[in-house]
């Protein structure tokens, strides 16, 4: 239950600060490769520096029965669907670009947190940790390459 404690610690730390000054919209632009398959499921989630799960940012793909193929996210959450309530959208087709804009706490950056993206496509191999990106100020604006389905992921303010 380490991850719950971590999340709790983070949220108490954040809520003790004035919220307005500390939040900003962050855009995640994901360009998919032309991998020649059906729409990809993508799970965006955050762990701390030790790899303990903190929380989810986005889930591309609406059918919970396929989430077990996002094996990193599945292992981190135990497949808990409530973790992505209100932050779930459609799967992303081959060669398409997904742009998500989220109002995130400022304290997320430069605090040792790591963004993970898991990817999976019907009848193709699962790609957990397709992208592993430490959330630092340096990472902002620099495209990162994925291991399989994702061409580039860019985090920007």
């Amino acid at each position: 239950m380490k991850h719950l404690l971590a999340a709790l610690a983070l949220s108490t730390a954040l809520t003790s600060l004035p919220a307005l000054a500390e939040a900003r919209p962050v855009t995640f632009t994901t360009q998919m490769r032309s991998y020649g398959g059906d729409g990809a499921y993508l799970a965006f989630y955050v762990t701390d520096a030790q790899g303990a799960y903190v929380g989810s940012l986005w889930m591309a793909g609406g059918k919970a029965k396929y989430y077990k193929h996002l094996s990193g996210w599945q292992a981190a959450t135990g497949g808990d669907r409530t973790q992505v309530d209100g932050i779930t959208g459609a799967s992303v087709g081959s060669g398409r670009e997904l742009k998500i804009t989220l109002d995130l706490q400022d304290a997320l950056f430069d605090a040792g947190y790591v963004l993970h993206v898991d990817a999976a496509v019907e009848d193709m191999r699962d790609s957990p940790n397709e992208i592993v990106l430490p959330l630092t100020s340096d990472a902002v604006g620099a495209p990162v390459t994925g291991r399989g389905y994702i061409d580039t992921l860019t985090v920007s303010f």
């Binding site: 009848d123 193709m124 191999r125 699962d126 390459t145 994925g146 291991r147 399989g148």
Partner: peptide, 20 residues
């Protein structure tokens, strides 16, 4: 990863020198 389709088709995925 190695996968085998019901047709007997075997597909492999790898990651070498930073490219899948």
């Amino acid at each position: 990863e190695i996968r085998r389709a019901p047709s007997g088709r075997i597909t492999a995925w790898w990651f070498e020198a930073g490219t899948p």
